[in-house]
């Protein structure tokens, strides 16, 4: 490269050079990158701690260049609460899947959010349990086939999929709740802004932020990566509308 060449896009410093274990086309990798880019741009890598869940992203600590804690299934918000309360000067983010956060961890996320823990919660919704091989999750859509609802999710049996961001926005305390998606470059660019703002709010000590990120799971949906992005667009977006459900500081930014 000659002297006036410039790098427009490269791996963020907060991300390691490790080839991830994620399946080809799984958008976990993109969400990791967006978090790492936010950490880099805010210059907080050296005082950031991530809390990894149990699920596909249990090995997240191999892909981030910052300290990490590994939480029991569903307990990341409680682990993060304990850490942040003793080290309010450090940046703490949790990274959880839908089974981890909504199913077993529903109590922990609701109370961490309601206490207004000054955390950045990244919540990946791919409508299925990935790591354990494609079982029904609380976010599995009606009629969606998984290994534990082989005839398609039957709402009479299991109730409706849970819209977590709307549920959380019923609480008074949380400061910033937004649902984004990473199934296309244009959506990824929006998602990056939201994730960055969530980290920014933590730096400004403003309160609890959660970003729900719609994500694909090609392997367990039984589709190619590109088909998965189409399936997400056609099936998940209608049920999980994107947008900001709560932003207590939106006016200030204008």
């Amino acid at each position: 490269m000659n002297n006036n060449s410039k790098t427009l896009f490269a791996r963020p410093e907060a991300m390691t050079d490790v080839v991830s274990h994620y399946c080809p086309g799984c958008t976990h990798g993109i969400i990791h990158r967006l978090a790492a880019e936010a950490i880099d741009s805010l210059g907080i890598r050296e005082k950031t701690v991530g809390v990894a869940p149990v699920g596909c992203s249990v090995l997240a600590y191999n892909y981030f260049n910052c300290d990490f804690l590994e939480a029991p299934h569903g307990r990341a918000p409680a682990i993060a609460t304990g850490f942040k309360r003793l080290r309010p000067d450090m940046m703490v983010f949790t990274y959880q899947g839908d089974g981890d956060l909504i199913s077993i961890g529903m109590s922990e996320i609701m109370h961490a959010a309601n206490r207004g823990e000054k955390l950045t919660a990244i919540f990946v919704n791919n409508a299925i349990y990935g790591m354990t091989g494609g079982q029904m999750a609380p976010t599995t859509l009606q009629g969606q086939i998984t290994s534990t609802c082989p005839a398609g999710r039957d709402l009479n049996e299991t109730g409706h999929p849970i819209r977590m961001t709307e549920l959380l926005s019923g609480l008074v305390t949380p400061m910033y709740l937004e649902r984004v998606s990473v199934h296309s470059p244009q959506h990824i660019i929006q998602a990056k802004k939201a994730i960055r703002k969530a980290f920014q709010y933590q730096m400004d000590n403003k309160g609890f932020s959660l970003i729900e990120v719609l994500s694909t799971c090609p392997t367990n949906w039984g589709q190619t990566p590109n088909e998965s992005t189409d399936w997400l667009e056609g099936n998940m977006l209608p049920y999980y509308p994107l947008g900001c459900f709560k932003d207590s500081f939106a006016e200030e930014d204008k």
């Binding site: 804690l69 307990r75 993060a80 609460t81 304990g82 309360r85 003793l86 109370h111």
Partner: peptide
Amino acid sequence: GVFLQGESELAVANMIFGAAATGKRV
């Protein structure tokens, strides 16, 4: 010091995990 009443003993024990990871006594 830090005092926090959690939502369950289960959550509290996990808060202890997070707090202990700082190296401080909890």
